[in-house]
Lab assay of single mutants.
Amino acid sequence: SEHYTFDGEEQAIRFMRDMEAKNLKYELQIHNGKYIIQVD
Rank of each mutant, 00 (worst) to 15 (best):
S1F: 13
S1D: 08
S1N: 11
S1K: 13
E2Y: 15
E2Q: 14
E2G: 14
E2D: 11
E2T: 14
E2L: 14
H3T: 15
H3M: 13
H3P: 09
Y4E: 02
Y4D: 01
T5M: 11
T5E: 12
T5P: 02
F6C: 08
F6P: 01
F6L: 03
F6N: 00
D7G: 04
D7N: 07
D7W: 09
D7R: 03
G8Y: 15
G8L: 15
G8C: 13
E9M: 12
E9K: 08
E9V: 11
E9G: 03
E9Y: 14
E10D: 11
E10C: 12
E10L: 07
Q11R: 05
Q11K: 06
Q11W: 06
Q11L: 09
A12H: 00
A12T: 02
I13A: 08
I13C: 06
I13M: 12
I13E: 10
I13R: 10
I13D: 09
R14H: 10
R14E: 15
R14S: 12
R14G: 08
F15K: 02
F15V: 04
F15G: 01
M16I: 12
M16N: 01
M16A: 05
M16P: 01
M16H: 01
R17S: 10
D18M: 12
D18R: 06
D18V: 07
D18N: 06
D18E: 14
D18L: 12
D18G: 04
M19F: 04
E20P: 01
E20N: 06
E20W: 05
E20L: 06
E20Y: 04
E20G: 03
A21P: 02
A21I: 09
K22P: 02
K22R: 10
K22T: 05
N23C: 06
N23T: 04
N23R: 06
N23S: 08
N23V: 02
N23E: 07
N23L: 06
N23I: 02
L24F: 09
L24D: 01
L24C: 08
K25G: 07
K25Q: 08
K25N: 08
K25Y: 09
Y26T: 09
Y26G: 04
Y26H: 03
Y26L: 05
Y26S: 04
E27A: 11
E27Q: 12
E27P: 00
L28P: 00
L28I: 09
L28V: 12
L28Y: 10
Q29F: 14
I30F: 09
I30H: 05
I30M: 08
I30D: 01
H31K: 13
H31M: 12
H31G: 04
H31P: 00
H31R: 12
N32Q: 09
N32V: 03
N32S: 06
G33C: 04
G33T: 03
G33S: 04
K34N: 05
K34E: 04
K34M: 11
K34H: 09
K34Y: 09
Y35L: 03
Y35G: 00
Y35N: 00
I36Q: 05
I36V: 10
I36Y: 12
I37S: 00
I37K: 00
I37H: 00
Q38I: 15
Q38V: 15
Q38W: 15
Q38R: 15
V39S: 03
V39E: 01
V39Y: 04
D40K: 14
D40M: 15
D40E: 13
D40G: 12
